[in-house]
Structures are given as C-alpha cells and as structure tokens.
Design a protein around this nucleic acid. Structure first.
Lengths: 101, 101
DNA sequence: GGGAATATTCCC
DNA sequence: GGGAATATTCCC
C-alpha cells in the first residue's frame, strides 16, 4: 500500500509562493489570512497580515517573505491568478445566513 | 554657474545595485569592501562583508540588500559586468611595492 | 491588475 | 559565470 504525506501536491516547490500561501492560510495561528466559510476564497485582513506576516520581526518563519510591502504580496497573488473579489465574503455564522446567501 | 551634487552620475537610480555598491565601497566604515590602491578594482573580504553588510542585523541601512547570501551578491556583480580578478591585488604599502609591480 | 525592470534564487 | 525561474519593485 502507498501512504505518503499529501499536505502538498507533487511538483510544488515547498519554498515557492503557492506553497507558502497554502501553509499560511491553513495555519489557524495566522489570524490575518484564512479561508472563507466555503473554502473557496482567501480572506485577508491587511492590518493583521502586515503585522503578523510581513513585519520584519516576523522573519523567523520559513514562510516569511523578503518583502514587507503588502502591495508586493498582492502582486504575487495576481501573478498566480488570484483576483480580488468584488463583494467581500461575510462570515456566515448561522443557517439563516446561508439561506440568505 | 552650475553647482550640484556629483556624488552619483545622472540617471543612476540611487536605490539600485550600482548606486548601493558605489556608496558601500566608498564608505570607509565598510571594512569588507574597498578600492584597490589604483581605484580600479573592488576588494572584498567575504567574511567581513557577510558580517557587516549581509547579516540580517545589518538591515538597518538603506544600502542593505534583501539577500543574506554572498553568492547572490556576486550574481549581481556579474550581472553588472564585474568579473573576479585572477590574481588578487595585494595591498601596496611602499614605493618599492609599486616599483616591483 | 498587470507589464516591465530589477533583485534573488536555483541550477548548469 | 551566466541562463532561466521566481520574487520584488516600480509605474501605468
């Protein structure tokens, strides 16, 4: 039988942007970046993200970036096909919210 | 009359590599990088350069690089036309040295 | 958002 | 050393 770590698909360089983004968004300690309730959209709180991920002091993590500029991070998102969503996805806490979607 | 700062030629972006290199090599506080006695060759002490310029702690200077790898610094030198000199230039302290050159 | 210039990394 | 991939910056 064939068991192996499927935390990342094959062929993805673990130090490149997509892999870092994957780890960052899946780490619940990173409050500045998370999945929306449907797991289809990445939610980013710019202020928290800058403070927790981009600030020079946060540079101990292997997932840190060399840039400290939020705009450069967004440039990377765009280069990898991410687009800003027109209407921000709200946090859906209740069934009623989902019905009203 | 026309007086102005000639510390860098016109058209040189002061935050790009050539300008940073110019300031680094001309600053006598940077012991890891200096001119040879003829002012034609840049002398680099890798160990001192890494310690004083490339180390993460040195990143307060506007002339700091984002890389901490000496090899990446050398890649930049090569991209701007610098080549390693075959025989290292020795420090010439006396007239006799110059005669013997 | 994205094209292009520049910097950094990776690899031959 | 340098080509090419990737990251970062600059600018429209």
């Amino acid at each position: 039988m064939d068991f192996r770590d499927r935390s990342l698909p094959d062929g993805i360089n673990p130090m490149n942007f997509p892999a870092k983004l994957w780890r960052l968004v899946n780490n619940p300690l990173n409050e500045g970046i998370s999945w929306d309730i449907h797991g289809e959209v990445i939610l980013i709180d710019q202020h928290l993200f800058e403070k927790q991920i981009l600030s020079p002091r946060a540079n101990t993590s292997p997932d840190a970036f060399k840039t400290t500029n939020f705009s450069s991070f967004v440039r990377q998102l765009n280069l990898y096909g991410f687009k800003k969503v027109d209407q921000p996805i709200k946090q859906l806490d209740t069934l009623q919210d989902i019905i009203n979607l």
